[in-house]
């Protein structure tokens, strides 16, 4: 055992130097040249700073709503609902979200509500909604903000992000950017 102890301790020391000291320092150096010096992409608006990729809660009627979140968009404790697909409490929750959506959005047919608008994301911090989720809210926002629907439709089109190389993932909209643009109209 003793003749094994020394090399094992030495090899661990080498690893600590390589991976806990040299490696993070090198990356800090690289991060200095990265977006926002490695502190995450930022959107600045009216003197406030927002993280572009961290979703925010939008529940007011004058904004495009973001997706439901199991952790209420708490960026210090990400999490999903972890509810199973047959869980009765979960199914009742979805039903309640659908009902609430219909109350706030009169004149919308139930079949137009996309599933992402009534289900919680994995991280609870999803910054995006689907294009359909934005479209289905146009009527409500147009009424409250007294805009023409066509103006909002154009805004949505402008903020729709296409899939990478036309291949990976669905079309999506960053809710924060869309709502900032909405405030700027």
């Amino acid at each position: 055992m003793k003749e094994n102890m020394l090399p094992a301790i030495k090899v661990t020391a080498v690893a600590i130097f390589l991976f806990s000291i040299l490696y993070p320092l090198l990356l800090l150096g690289i991060a200095y040249f990265g977006p926002n010096n490695g502190k995450g992409k930022i959107i600045e608006y009216k003197g406030r700073k927002y993280y572009k990729s961290i979703g925010q809660s939008f529940t007011g009627n004058k904004y495009f709503w973001s997706r439901p979140s199991a952790v209420n968009y708490n960026a210090n404790g990400s999490g999903g609902s972890n509810k199973g697909p047959s869980n009765k409490v979960y199914l009742a929750e979805i039903q309640a979200r659908i009902d609430s959506f219909l109350v706030h959005n009169p004149g919308i047919d139930k079949s137009a509500i996309p599933v992402d608008l009534v289900t919680a994301s994995g991280s609870g911090l999803d910054p995006h909604i689907s294009v359909q989720a934005a479209n289905v809210q146009v009527k409500r926002i147009a009424r409250i903000r007294r805009f023409k629907e066509s103006v909002l439709n154009k805004l949505i089109e402008k903020h729709t992000e296409k899939p990478l190389w036309g291949l990976f993932g669905p079309k999506k909209i960053n809710v924060l950017e869309l709502n900032i643009a909405l405030d700027n109209l």
Binding site: P85, Q95, I113, T119, H128
Partner: peptide, 21 residues
Amino acid sequence: LVSKMGIDTSSGNMEGKEIRF
């Protein structure tokens, strides 16, 4: 069970999933 409620589930089972993927 969610499709039965009459909403559009064409994008799949989105509970616990992120839009960007």
